[in-house]
Write a protein that binds this DNA or RNA. Sequence first.
RNA 1: GGGCGGAUAGCUCAGUGGCAAGAGCACCUGCCUUACACGCAGGGGGUCGCAGGUUCAAGUCCUGCUCCGCCCACCA
Length: 721
Amino acid sequence: MPEKMPPAYDHEQVEDKWYDYWLKEDVPSAELDRDREPFCIVIPPPNVTGSLHMGHALDNTIQDLLTRWKRMQGYAALWLPGTDHAGIATQNVVEKMLEEEGKTRHDLGREKFLEKTWEVADEHHDVIIGQLQRLGCTPDWSRERFTLDEGLSDAVREAFVTLYEEGLIYRGARMINWCPRCSTGLSDLEVEHMDDAGHFWHMRYPSPDGGPGVMVATTRPETMLGDTAVAVHPDDERYADLIGETVILPLMDREIPVVADELVDPEFGTGAVKVTPAHDPTDLAIAQNHNLDRVVVIGEDGKMTDESGQFAGMDRFEARREIVSALEEQGLLEGIEEHHHKVGHCSRCDTIVEPLISEQWFVAMEKLAADGLRAVDDGLVRFVPERWTKVYREWLENIEDWCISRQLWWGHQIPAWWCTRCNQWIVSREDPTECLSCGVTGLVQSPDVLDTWFSSGLWPFSTLGWPEETEELDFWFPTSVLVTAYDIIFFWVARMIMDSMHFMGEQPFDNVFIHGLVRTEDGQKMSKSLGTGVDPLELIDEYGADALRFALMQMITHGQDLRYSEDRVVGARNFCNKLWNMTRFVTMNLEDAPDEKIDLSQSDLSLADRWILSRHHRMLETIDRELTRYNIAQATDALYEHIWSEFADWYVELAKGDLYDPETPDRKAITQEVLRTVLSGILRALHPIMPFITEELWHRLKEDAGSIALAEFPMADEEMF
RNA sequence: GGGCGGAUAGCUCAGUGGCAAGAGCACCUGCCUUACACGCAGGGGGUCGCAGGUUCAAGUCCUGCUCCGCCCACCA
């Protein structure tokens, strides 16, 4: 006899027990079994920058649900877990910790700083794994990976060297986004363009003969110190006479030419553009058309360089103020307008980025992008919902080369060594001890590390063993589905597809299921720093993991952001209680059930029996159909509706008549069989969403069934009835 | 400047051209009926953003517009 069930479900009595049981029973482990169909999901590796938020809870519940569902259907289902070192993000977290002690990373030095970062990363890793387990997630822990572990580092090196050998990675001086605070180059994606309130300063560059010269307008007066020309549109009649002439650059007393260039928009500002080739991408393009000099006036530290005359050494924004007042004193400032414009900020530390010409490593994107486009054009990768394909396409069609080197410490150091004698880079799979050309020893490795997304791009195959030709790759690759939010389609999804097409010759995954972001009840972004974040663990403590999972799965929409509301979790907790009490009722009424299982297909079923069995079948079909289409909320709702409105409200109520009538023992036996059959089917179907309570209730039901064998739980590929 | 998404009950949202538009929460009225008050039975509440059009039939398809949100882009 099972112990008596209390009248309310208490998740705390259940959850840890079953997670330990799953580990003991090896439930998460995926067996490479060629007699079964492969199914594989690789986790979007959480950053080891902190703990998991609601978005992770959502994303990982979906993956756990899909994995459990496939596992129950008999697939060789692998959900491969891991974490991401998250280069710049983690480095920033550690730098902020040091800042509180009044230190910078340079006070520690590279080695000590990395030691500290490993400590922080390990700590966060353990928190993250604990959180996934509390959530009930069952990825195959024996295959867990980290983007900085040995195997993945080998994969990174293999990818880098191969691309270099193919001429797809090159080093060059190009204009990039520079964060003076992080003191590193950034990729275009790592810059957030924010609509900042600024000013539009109109200033006059007079003619050498003392004439009026030309009026230019700028939002960044400090760059004027590096001007080497003024540009106007070739067809702009206002300035026709000036083209080919020169003007005097104020404050620097430099004579600079007026050039004509199609890139100038005559409608904007004064129609005359000050040209600062070293600090603006458009200006650089103009400079290249006219062979203009580049004068670097802003350094990597965000301070004015020695080329800045009297402003040398000033912070760039201090210089801006000083220059404006200096121009004003000289009567050359002819107007200030309020001006809202997009200003690039470092996505990690919010500092205003500075466009600089810098020597960096780049990935040439043209060929890779073509491969990436082919993947969707040939239907190798399918986005769900389909509309994201267009977003993906448009990004790839307009892509620029990718700056992959970072002047940071936390990450994969670039496998390139400088030979001072030959003045060339040696890029190699093995750490070279001497120059391959001249044999000189004492080569120095580039101190730079790779953009963190370089390693994540390889994730779907590096985690399965690439560049080794492993059995795992052969069996599980391409993986089945990638589950992620839309905000990293460019950063990550696109790069995985390109890399996979390039290195593996096939797609990394057949489907990409894109979901939205979890927002607060009033639609704000959830953010720890804004205090709008909700900690999934607190909800699990209060309502249980199953309630949280169920609520999240009910809220999923296709690529639409979802608003989190605690009411949903309360509702899901109530649903758990309903389920608990349904099972309590059924087990109480099964105590005197016959020892022999009744074959319902040979029984004289009542209308109610036939109705609930048919509804039950319909529900199972709906689940399968909707999950196949990634309509997770629809599947979840179908369960809820069937369990509560059909089974509990109607069948269980109707069953009471038969159960309590001593005159009709045959009827009662059939009813008992139907109750047991439908309830066990419900528990199985619900298990991928609510694994803890269903496992508990299943075992209670099974115990109660005595000698009658129920199909093994949670395997559902056996006969349901 | 380009692109995308949304606008359906007080709130959050389902709704895959066709029975009288749905759910959860909230609200109202009864019920502690021995599985469950985290519950049961019942109820009120919507000109489906606006204007046209296609169709026997439109919340659903087409066109235009309004408002909200997001993404991309080197307009100084």
